[in-house]
């Protein structure tokens, strides 16, 4: 049995070291369990489905980029609303219900580190979900290459894309994700039950989505600009048309900071008032 007392232990008090430790465990928990792979599989299937839909539409309609047709349909919203609760509902709720929060909070770790570690892990996983979509242009080129070699004809149809088409939609998907992931983490701190966390998060996102569509129902009343400002459907619409805008960045980053600050308070509050 080795003697421990005599060997010196290398220790660090780095704030980022602890954050990174929590982040890595959380991120690995997505890829180390079937859960994460099911979500990823679902994302790939949905993205393929949108592409198929977009190609169908583009046989009749033209004038917009392929990304516009992919994201401007009901299938997309169905995915977009449910993906955030799916990613985030486990994070803090599971920690609380399995009792592992106790282990975290009796180690030299702050609540902020826990919340941020979980947040960034979920955000990274969310970003990864969009990567398969980036492969479609390459896959289409590869297919055409194969056709030209195998059949010695240059195929006429190819997926029409330019890198510029991708910047807009991907940046708004990322920017809004910054906020929606934080919202999901907040919901997950509210309860010990993942299911309830998921339901609350879904409801919150649906409400947010429809708030943005209020002007469609009520017309352009005086407060309407505020609703336009927060309209995720309008933002995605304009970003996919290539109209990039910094206002959503300000909105979503500040909302995310607010959500995470509140989450930290909730996690502490749960212990102080029980």
């Amino acid at each position: 049995m080795a003697e421990n007392a005599n060997t010196s232990i290398t220790r660090t008090r780095s704030w980022f070291y602890t954050l990174r430790t929590i982040f890595l465990r959380e991120f690995r928990s997505f890829l180390g369990t079937p859960f994460g792979w099911v979500i990823l599989g679902c994302a790939i299937a949905m993205q393929g489905f949108w592409l198929q839909t977009a190609l169908q539409i583009m046989t009749k309609a033209t004038g917009e980029s392929i990304m516009f047709y992919m994201l401007d349909n009901v299938n997309f919203w169905f995915f977009f609303i449910f993906i955030f609760p799916l990613i985030t509902m486990r994070s803090l709720a599971e920690e609380e219900s399995h009792g592992t929060m106790e282990g975290l909070l009796t180690a030299p770790v702050t609540t902020t580190q826990i919340v941020l570690g979980k947040y960034f892990a979920s955000l990274l996983f969310y970003i990864i979900l969009w990567l398969p979509m980036l492969l479609y242009p390459a896959m289409s080129d590869l297919g055409n290459l194969y056709t030209s070699i195998r059949y010695d004809v240059v195929p006429e149809g190819r997926i029409d894309y330019t890198p510029a088409d991708w910047y807009g939609p991907l940046s708004i998907l990322f920017i809004s994700g910054v906020f929606f992931i934080a919202l999901g983490i907040l919901c997950s701190a509210l309860t010990r039950s993942q299911i309830i966390a998921g339901i609350v998060c879904t409801c919150a996102i649906i409400i947010y989505y429809f708030m943005g569509r209020v002007p469609e129902l009520w017309g352009e009343f005086p407060a309407a600009p505020a609703f336009h400002y927060m309209s995720i459907s309008e933002q995605i619409g304009s970003f996919t048309r290539g109209l990039l805008d910094t206002r959503p960045v300000v909105l979503y980053v500040s909302l995310a900071v607010l959500m995470l600050a509140v989450t930290t308070r909730i996690v502490d509050y749960r212990r102080w008032h029980r």
């Binding site: 060997t7 232990i9 290398t10 220790r11 070291y17 430790t21 465990r25 975290l104 180690a107 030299p108």
Partner: peptide, 19 residues
């Protein structure tokens, strides 16, 4: 993971866990 959470780093992680 727990060793790192407790601020142990570098080679000490493996060493402590082994111990």
């Amino acid at each position: 993971y727990r060793a790192r959470l407790k601020g142990i780093c570098g080679k000490s992680v493996r060493q402590q866990v082994g111990w």
